[in-house]
Simulated scan of single mutants.
Amino acid sequence: MFVLAEMKHVIRIPPHDFKKRLNDAISEELNKKLANKVVLNVGLCIALFDITRLEDSYIFPGDGAAHTKVNFRYVVFRPFMEEILIGKIKSCSPEGVQVTLGFFDDIIIPPASLQHPSRFDETEQAWVWIYDTDGDTHDLFMDPGETIRFRVTAESFVETSPVGPENPDVKDAVDATEEPKVPYKLTGSINEPGLGLLSWWANS
């Protein structure tokens, strides 16, 4: 679920931080810049692990800050494919079940990846597994807040950096209805024995 990503960056240390140890000042700047941010094709950055190399610091004309090239390792959230995780149901909709891990909410289990057969209950706003036992069917609801075990089946990264209009002479009106892009999203599945709500399998 968590991996160490090797990165490098040029860090700017402002003059008021010169009184700090260089490693401490750089660590603070790296965490300010990266913690809780998604790096494209890397994952969700959690915290600095260590600094592996510091190059010489330079002060450029017109800028009193020190610029230092740093090689470092960062703790990143990026589950591997087919990894099994445990989270909580955040919400349900006709598009599927949204799962949260507490620190990461962009996980969706689409309808085709739920236990079969399942249906969406509009009244309860919850997905229901229609469980068959020797001809008798039971509705097993997937309610928000329930603990769920799922398999990671896909991931997607989206570039969310702002870009200007293709024609700089044309100022397009911003579409207020456009949903914000999700930089990093996971897709999960529970359509196999042992996956789904933990309560389903507690007594099996």
Score class of each variant (00 low, 15 high):
Leu40Asp: 11
Ser161Gln: 14
Met142Ala: 10
Asp17Ala: 12
Lys88Met: 09
Glu179Pro: 05
Thr137Ser: 11
Arg119Lys: 12
Pro144Lys: 06
Val42Phe: 01
Lys171Val: 15
Ala65Asn: 01
Asp50Glu: 04
Asn31Val: 07
Phe18Val: 02
Lys90Glu: 13
Asp106Pro: 08
Lys8Cys: 13
Ser118Trp: 02
Pro110His: 03
Asn203Phe: 10
Val163Tyr: 08
Arg73Thr: 14
Leu140Cys: 08
Pro162Ile: 08
Ser27Lys: 11
Cys92Glu: 03
Asp106Phe: 13
Leu48Trp: 01
Leu140Ser: 05
Lys181Glu: 09
Thr137Lys: 11
Glu83Ile: 03
Leu140Val: 13
Leu30Gly: 00
Gly62Arg: 04
Thr133Lys: 14
Asn23Tyr: 12
Gln115Phe: 06
Leu85Thr: 05
Pro168Met: 04
Thr187Gly: 09
Tyr131Pro: 04
Lys185Tyr: 02
Lys181Ser: 06
Thr137Met: 05
Val182Ile: 15
Asn31His: 04
Val163Ala: 12
Asp24Leu: 10
Asp50His: 02
Lys181Gln: 09
Asn191Met: 04
Ile51Ala: 01
Pro168Val: 04
Arg53Met: 10
Glu146Asn: 07
Glu6Asp: 11
His16Asn: 15
Trp200Thr: 07
Pro117Val: 01
Glu192Ile: 03
Phe77Tyr: 15
Lys8Asn: 15
Arg53Gly: 07
Gly194Leu: 02
Glu6His: 09
Phe49Pro: 04
Gly62Gln: 04
Pro183Thr: 07
Leu30Cys: 01
Asp169Gln: 12
Tyr184Arg: 09
Asn41His: 09
Glu83Arg: 03
Glu29Trp: 00
Ile13Ser: 03
Thr187Cys: 06
Cys92Leu: 04
His138Asn: 12
Val42Gln: 02
Gly135Phe: 03
Phe120Asn: 00
Leu85Trp: 03
Leu54Asn: 06
Pro61His: 11
Arg119Gly: 05
Ile130Asn: 12
Glu124Arg: 15
Leu195Thr: 00
Lys8Tyr: 10
Phe141Leu: 11
Ile84Phe: 04
Leu54Pro: 00
Arg12Leu: 00
Ile148Glu: 06
Asp106Met: 09
Tyr131Glu: 13
Lys8Met: 14
Pro180Ile: 03
Pro15Glu: 03
Met1Cys: 10
Thr160Met: 05
Gly102Ile: 08
Lys8Gln: 15
Ala154Thr: 06
Gly135Cys: 03
Ala65Gly: 05
Ile130Leu: 14
Leu44Ser: 08
Ile26Tyr: 01
Ala202Tyr: 09
Ile108Trp: 05
Pro61Tyr: 11
Thr147His: 11
Ile148Asp: 05
Val39Gly: 02
Lys32Ala: 08
Phe80Tyr: 13
Leu198Val: 09
Pro165Ser: 00
Ala176Val: 14
Leu195Asp: 00
Ser93Thr: 02
Glu82Asp: 15
Ala112Ser: 14
Trp201Gln: 02
Ala66Glu: 14
Asn71Trp: 14
Pro110Leu: 02
Val10Tyr: 01
Thr160Pro: 04
Glu146Met: 11
Glu95Phe: 10
His138Leu: 11
Ile148Trp: 06
Ile51Thr: 01
Pro168Ile: 05
Val99Ile: 15
Asn167Val: 06
Pro61Glu: 15
Thr123Phe: 07
Pro94Cys: 10
Asp143Ala: 08
Met81Val: 14
Ser204Asn: 12
Ser199Cys: 03
Ile26Gln: 01
Asp56Trp: 09
Lys90Arg: 13
